[in-house]
Amino acid sequence: MKSAIIVFPGSNCDGDCFHVLSEVLGQPAEYVFHKEKFSAGDFDLIVLPGGFSYGDYLRAGAIARFSPAMESVLKAAERGKLILGICNGFQILLEAGLLPGAMMKNRDLKFHCHDVYLKVGTADSPFTNLYLPGEVVKMPVAHGQGNYYADEDTIERLKSENRIAFYYSDEKGRVTEKANPNGSAANIAGILNEGRNVLGMMPHPERCAEEILGNADGKKLFKSILEYLEGRSKIGKIGRS
């Protein structure tokens, strides 16, 4: 499993993703600078890391989507390559139109950095196949603009197509208003595209993938990807890759 981590100006979780992929999972990973185009065939996974690309100026992710590397990401997505956008990476995927909806400032207008509980919405994806559907996991969030918005039709579609990967929930897996840290529609914390090869999520699995950090719930996400790519996952092959 060879990964590309796209470095935008202002990315700041690029090193964290690199660390987890290379040190924790022991898989090859490379940084790709936003000014470079790349060939999708060279990588199995493309990560759009968190941070503040272009300072979040104008709108989070709005400027980054025009970088040359994103052209390659769009092509790779079309070919069914796995693409994971975390936090600012999720925002970029939304702005680029690879995922539906948009991101707004958190409901209370504050940056939120703390652990949240997530209910796994679907295990039927290359990113979540090692989780159980409905399983509750804990991950940190750290964002000021994680308030997911989409019109009702889109939300209904996401639900009916089983494309909501994670919901903000309480410890017991109840998807409640109180457990919603930022005001996201339907408590959505992460969604898949139609082809299920693109995942965008606000919580940071790379920040909870080692016991020394007190929580390794996020490691399963990366291991799921490895399982899938190595053909061991129960979900089989998706899309046209």
């Binding site: 964290d16 968190g50 504050k110 950095c113 790379e206 920040r207």
Partner: peptide, 13 residues
């Protein structure tokens, strides 16, 4: 401190 990102860099034990 919840308004400060204190977990980025994945070193905060």
């Amino acid at each position: 401190y919840q308004q400060y990102d204190h977990t980025v860099r994945t070193d905060t034990v």
